[in-house]
Design a protein around this nucleic acid. Structure first.
Lengths: 212, 212
DNA sequence: GTTACCACAATTGTCTACACTTTTGTAACC
DNA sequence: GGTTACAAAAGTGTAGACAATTGTGGTAAC
């Protein structure tokens, strides 16, 4: 029962159906989902630990608002961890893994050509998730899941930056080639370059927003 | 009330007063601490998210056992994050920060000379924690707190490896000098070297244990 | 001697009720 | 008109009771 509440809230927050700073009232949620208040409470505690929810004593829980500065922080941490992960991926990858990555890459290319940027963004996410699976590193996987769930709101924007889709594609291809070659150093370098690009795009988006 | 239970359990687990795999029975703990079962339950959920406790449905909670392989994983993740942190520290550090680090370093040196390895190990931890504070990076700080709490059991051992105290000291000094110079690249490199040393020591300890 | 089954004990999962805290609304007072 | 005091409402924190599940020990059948 607690898991039901957790999954639902997790989905609603990361999916953007719940707005940042929106109050999460235990009783309301419990009734809506048909579970007890205790179950909702447990779910909120878990979500708080993951950084998706902020709880204040006697004042209830809210969807946590991730500031632009914090988003940059998170990206920085993510970069460090994904670089380690991609090194492992470059060593562990099987032929089957490579085929899957190649497939994702080509689909991503199609989407970009069609101008379907949200589709491309989704495939982007899949590509990274697949890499992390290949890396087979439980600890990093756990940490990255936490970090990414906090970032979903921002991911949309970065790919919408002018010129970003094309460079994103090229960067992913470079990562793939390094992993294919089984070269961890090159893979890390490519990943670092890619995530610098994402960070830069986010910074630009933030600056543009500031100017408005 | 929930915080009381959390703090107590956190301390008992990281302090080694509760053994790995030991069962954590909600009612017993609640009575011992004079809080309700719900409070203990909440604390256990938080600890599970932090990786200190493992809970199985209908089967209760246990202190989570961190395997040697997992310890290596954790160290790897920690290395990546601390390298980012030390870069920030090298940029942010004030004269006051440097004085504090210098002080810690000299006390560490004294402890090693006296042969007080546990004292040195404690100062080691303080040195790293101080660096992370100086880095002023909330996200990384949060992640490292999680990772370190899982590692405490292993930290004891690494400094007991032959030759480790001296090299550890030298490595810390190198980190300090790079931070003092305000050189992030050098600081990262020094930190990487240091943590490789720790990982290596852990691997040796694991191998030695294997041989027994 | 071994296996299958059942009953019992231990412990977790869930629900309900109540106490406490914060917020909000209202009215008296300066 | 604005400020303070107080009361009601909303919502969280806590406790205790009950239901459901798992594990265990003993007993009987083979």
């Amino acid at each position: 029962m607690s898991d039901v509440a957790y999954e639902k809230l997790y989905g609603d927050i990361t999916g953007g159906r719940l707005q940042p700073n929106e109050r999460l009232i235990e009783l309301d949620i419990a009734q809506e989902l048909g579970v007890s208040r205790a179950a909702v409470r447990n779910a909120l505690i878990r979500l708080e630990q993951e950084g998706l929810v902020k709880r204040e004593p006697n004042r209830g829980a809210r969807v946590r608002l991730v500031s632009e500065e914090e988003a940059v922080e998170i990206l920085e941490a993510r970069m460090a961890l994904e670089c380690v992960a991609v090194r492992h991926a470059a060593v562990n990858r099987t032929q089957r893994d490579l085929a899957e990555l190649r497939e994702l890459l080509s689909r991503m290319e199609s989407r970009v050509k069609e101008g379907d940027l949200l589709g491309a963004s989704e495939l982007n996410g899949q590509f990274h998730r697949r890499l992390i699976e290949i890396a087979d590193h439980a600890t990093i996987s756990r940490l990255l899941k936490m970090l990414n769930s906090q970032l979903i709101r921002f991911q949309y924007r970065t790919i919408l930056t002018p010129g970003r889709p094309a460079s994103s594609l090229a960067e992913h291809r470079a990562i793939f080639e390094a992993v294919e070659a089984g070269d961890p150093d090159r893979a890390e370098k490519a990943m670092r370059k890619h995530l610098s690009g994402v960070t830069e795009a986010l910074r630009q988006a933030a600056a543009q927003k500031e100017a408005r």
